[in-house]
């Protein structure tokens, strides 16, 4: 019986971790390239959740019945629209501050975060929203009795599979394409890259678009799985995803995914075996502890201060 609970928590943790990892990618890429924490990233994820519900309702109104097709269309539309949000945020609030002092972009990011939260609250209302469940059913694994099994729903499976596919696509983009090479160059040395003719402004914009796109994937998947959301979900999701990014080593893409999975598992076991009320407290404490004892994270390299 405990074995089943354990395995069930592991499955839940893996699913949760995939979502954290997807959001963490946005933090880690932006931090790697311009060295700032994009506080508005959690809100981008929240916007993706709303867009998912809106597009889904729109498709239903148009009479689309097939769930797989609906999910694909919603995913594509949400990614496109959310990426546009990511691009606009960078263009409006961060690009003018590229050479300002250290505090300015952070405060600007807080400002954007407030704007997006309140924008959604004012336009969509403050109450919790939901979508009809379109992905029912699942598998019973390791079944050894009427109550002894590990449940893996179709939605959970979709989350893990999609997260893995997205990470592979992103990795391919960064490692193999010309634009990805430019991204890596800018991450190494922005001034040198621009001297060699890389359009750094465009590269930074691309990074924001990619980060927002990954957050959009997370937003769609979570909404399909849990079905309910409100305008405040970006806040907690944002801090946790940032924790995942730090845990994995900020600046490192595989680190973000690894950190996400580790955090997801830790949180899931904590709420399964210790206490559910304090699972957020546990995650935030983990962030503080990691920053104190291993600020470079699991896969990161220690920062060398430029004097």
């Amino acid at each position: 019986m405990t074995g089943h609970i354990f395995a069930q928590q592991a499955v839940n943790g893996l699913v949760l971790g995939s979502v954290y990892g997807l959001i963490a990618v946005g933090y880690t890429m932006v931090y790697g390239i311009i060295g700032m924490i994009n506080f508005a990233h959690g809100e981008i994820y929240m916007i993706a959740a709303y867009l998912t519900a809106i597009f889904l309702a729109g498709l239903t109104l148009l009479g689309l019945q097939s769930p797989p097709l609906a999910i694909l269309l919603v995913l594509a539309a949400t990614i496109a629209c959310t990426a546009l949000y990511g691009w606009s945020v960078e263009r409006i609030a961060y690009r003018p501050l590229r050479h300002a002092n250290r505090l300015a972009p952070l405060i600007s990011a807080i400002g954007i975060s407030l704007i997006l939260q309140n924008y959604v609250r004012l336009s969509q209302g403050a109450r919790t929203q939901g979508i009809p469940s379109i992905l029912d059913g699942g598998f019973h694994l390791f079944a050894s009795g009427p109550d002894a099994f590990v449940r893996l729903t179709h939605a959970q499976l979709l989350i893990v599979v999609t997260a893995i596919i997205s990470m592979f696509l992103l990795h391919f983009f960064i490692a193999r394409t010309a634009m990805g090479r430019a991204c890596r160059a800018v991450q190494q040395d922005r001034v040198m890259a621009s001297l060699l003719g890389v359009n750094t402004d465009r590269v930074i914009a691309i990074v924001f678009v990619l980060g927002a796109g990954m957050a959009a994937v997370a937003g769609v998947l979570v909404t399909l799985n849990y079905g309910s959301f409100d305008f405040f979900i970006g806040f907690v999701a944002g801090i946790k995803a940032f924790t995942a990014a730090v845990l994995g080593g900020i600046g490192s893409l595989p680190g973000a995914m690894l950190g996400g999975v580790v955090l997801g598992l830790a949180e899931s076991f904590f709420s399964g075996f210790v206490n559910t009320d304090y699972k957020d407290v546990f995650a935030f404490s983990l962030l503080v502890l990691v920053l104190i004892f291993k600020p470079s994270g699991l896969l990161g390299v220690p920062e060398v201060e430029k004097v």
Partner: peptide
């Protein structure tokens, strides 16, 4: 009602124009 929105806008604009 619009407090949060205005605060956010003001913060961004202050940082851009008069940090």
């Amino acid at each position: 009602e619009y407090r949060g929105l205005l605060f956010g806008c003001a913060m961004v604009m202050m940082m851009i124009w008069r940090p």
